[in-house]
């Protein structure tokens, strides 16, 4: 299974000019994602996790270090990544004037895929995304979980080799969140995509990903890399094992150390 990485970040740093000096957001972030892997980034809030995704997506360029995105044999570096990854931001960002179907096909439409073909492809996936019968509904008629699944469908349909998920379940209530995690595990096995997931939920990171990168507080560095040894297919029940608890504790130790939380 070990193939060349789809995504390779090497010593990425990012700083913004601010007021008098500069604001250093990322100090030293190196990570690799291989084909078919889902990798999680976890860190204290405000540590720059979303900036990492913005840099990967090509919305921003790193101040130093390099980003290599290898898809279909070609490697794109600076200034060429826009349009090569599917980015799902924290908010669902559905266009309120478009129906479920209209929102889902947005990525394909932007790439110039014919509307008829795009619709067909979206319709074929509605069932998998728990949206059958809702193709013609406007987003404001949907629940939070459903809106999030429409955003997911839009992301997956965009047909990019790499998917970036920025706290996709952050805004959902605990129960919907657990359902969505289970659903994502199921989905991921089926679509075989490569992905980077940003989360602040240790359990979610362990449950969903092959590897967890624990980031420090701003400016972000990779503090720890945890390979998750849990077997696939995963299930929520694994969260109750001692192995899981030990992993969770080790990650929380690093995170709490960052935040200065006193150990009992």
């Amino acid at each position: 299974m070990a193939s060349e990485p789809v995504l390779q970040l090497t010593a990425v740093a990012k700083a913004y000019a601010s007021g008098q000096g500069e604001l250093r957001v990322l100090q030293d972030v190196s990570l690799a994602v291989r084909r078919g892997e889902l990798v999680s980034l976890i860190g204290p809030s405000g540590c720059g996790k979303s900036t990492v995704l913005n840099v990967i997506a090509g919305l921003e360029e790193p101040t130093s270090g390099s980003v290599a995105l290898s898809t279909d044999g070609t490697t794109s570096s600076d200034g060429q990544r826009l349009g090569r990854v599917a980015y799902m931001p924290q908010k669902d960002l559905l266009l309120p004037w478009r129906t479920v179907l209209g929102n889902a096909v947005l990525g394909l439409e932007v790439q110039g895929v014919g509307l008829k073909l795009a619709r067909q492809r979206a319709e074929a996936l509605l069932d998998t995304f728990g949206l059958s019968g809702f193709a013609q509904e406007y987003p404001h008629n949907l629940s939070g979980g459903m809106r999030q699944r429409v955003a997911f469908l839009r992301t997956i349909l965009a047909d990019k080799p790499l998917v970036l998920l920025d706290e996709p379940f952050g805004a959902l209530d605990a129960l919907t969140r657990a359902e969505m995690q289970a659903w994502l595990l199921d989905l991921w096995a089926g679509v075989g995509r490569t992905g980077v997931l940003v989360t602040h939920d240790v359990e979610e990171a362990l449950l969903l990903s092959h590897r967890v990168y624990v980031l420090s507080a701003r400016p972000a560095r990779v503090r720890q890399v945890v390979e998750v040894p849990l077997p696939w297919p995963r299930s929520r029940r694994m969260a109750a094992t001692t192995e899981f608890a030990a992993l969770k504790a080790s990650i929380l130790d690093v995170l709490w150390d960052q935040a200065g939380v006193l150990h009992a």
């Binding site: 826009l82 599917a86 980015y87 266009l95 439409e109 932007v110």
Partner: peptide
Amino acid sequence: EMVNMLRSLGASRWQVFRKVQVPG
């Protein structure tokens, strides 16, 4: 963020204008 989302999907400025800014 909506503009960023569309740009990350590979949309041109004109597409962003037509698909998000005008209807919005």
